[in-house]
Simulated assay, not measured.
Amino acid sequence: MTFSAEKSEAIIEALLSCRLRDARFPAALEASWLEEGVLQLLPAHPTGAVVISAGIHGNETAPVEMLAALLASLMAGEQPLSQALLLVFGNPPALRAGKRYLHSDMNRLFGGRHRHAVPGNESRRAARLEQATAAFFQRVEAEGDLPRVHLDMHTAIRGSRFPQFALIPFHQHRYGAAFYTLLAACELDAVVQHTAPGGTFSHYLSDAFGAQSCTLELGKARPFGQNPLSCFAAVDSAIRALLAGSALPARKQPPMRFFTVAQSIIKTSSSFRLNLDPSVENFTQLPAGFEIACEHDKSWRVDDVAPWILFPNASVAPGLRAGLLLKPDLSPQH
């Protein structure tokens, strides 16, 4: 399935402007907009609570088109819903502008970090998304102690040796085997476990509400209308099975690879230099001893324990992550 650019723009604008406030949903669903682009759908007797978000970065459009198609199926009554569901279209102004963000990287501003950020679109939106998700989970509590799942869908700036992968935020509560079964059903190539808190939306929902949450990276960022959505069919099928409360699709690909973050490369000054070709792919294995980055009198070198590079980016602002070094994890901790 591929959306035309015109159809994508029309659908997204309708969603973001809340022109669907008066849209009809099946009678069994209670529908309400909590914010611009934030829709809550409640069946009569939910068996779980699911948050699905996309468009936290405005230039990552494939997940937004996937959510638009899912919403159309829910409105038509074609998609069964057994879960309390919050659909989040993350950054409306950036989506309209076709930019990653307008003032600040919003996926670094959650968990209250927006209060100390440059005032602007993203700091305001992060605060409102925190309020909307809090309202959703407060509403869900009235239904009992339901399991909570959050999938924050993104696409990556650069190519990847493992094109589709999940990032699990640092967490202190248990992630059950069922959550990893869900990721496997999505036909993901790899799973990366963070080892320190962060300002991402997935970390916020995990930390603040006990959700089993992750960031999904689904291929490369493209403009609206240029996304080969068939490449994400397994993710779409797994999400739809989760929402329906039906059996997950059986995995057909080789087992997922597991990694853990061994080191974060933090840029602290304008003298920072990343010694990698700009075209290097995520999950590239680097030679031991290679000086991957330097600034002033500090140097980062690759060792043979953690040779895989993820998200190298020298252009980030000082104080932000310029790359991650990964080590293999043969026995991932749930």
Rank of each mutant, 00 (worst) to 15 (best):
T2P: 08
F3R: 12
K7V: 13
S8I: 05
A10E: 06
E13V: 09
L20E: 08
A23C: 03
E30M: 14
A31Q: 09
A31Y: 02
A31D: 00
S32K: 10
W33L: 13
W33I: 10
P43Q: 12
V50A: 14
V51S: 02
A54K: 02
M66W: 09
A68P: 01
A69V: 07
A72Y: 04
A72K: 04
S73Q: 12
M75T: 02
Q83T: 12
A84M: 12
L85D: 01
G90K: 05
P93L: 14
L95P: 03
G98A: 07
K99R: 14
K99N: 06
K99H: 07
Y101P: 01
H103A: 10
D105M: 04
F110H: 01
G111M: 06
G112C: 01
R125D: 05
R125N: 05
Q131D: 08
A132C: 07
A134C: 03
A135Q: 12
E141A: 11
A142G: 12
P147E: 09
V149I: 11
V149N: 10
H150Y: 04
D152L: 00
T155N: 13
G159M: 14
A166R: 03
L167H: 07
Y175W: 09
A184K: 10
C186K: 04
E187C: 03
V192H: 04
T195M: 06
A196T: 11
H203P: 02
Y204F: 14
A211K: 03
A221Y: 01
R222G: 06
R222M: 05
F224V: 02
L229M: 03
D236T: 13
G245S: 07
A247R: 03
L248M: 07
L248P: 02
P249L: 10
A250L: 10
K252N: 06
K252D: 14
Q253P: 09
F259R: 07
F259E: 04
F259L: 08
A262F: 00
S264E: 06
I265Q: 04
S271H: 07
N275L: 09
P278N: 10
P278T: 13
S279W: 05
E281H: 14
E281Q: 07
L286H: 10
I292R: 08
C294L: 04
K298V: 08
S299L: 07
A306D: 10
P312D: 15
N313T: 05
S315K: 08
A317M: 14
G323M: 11
L325D: 12
L325G: 03
L326C: 04
D329K: 09
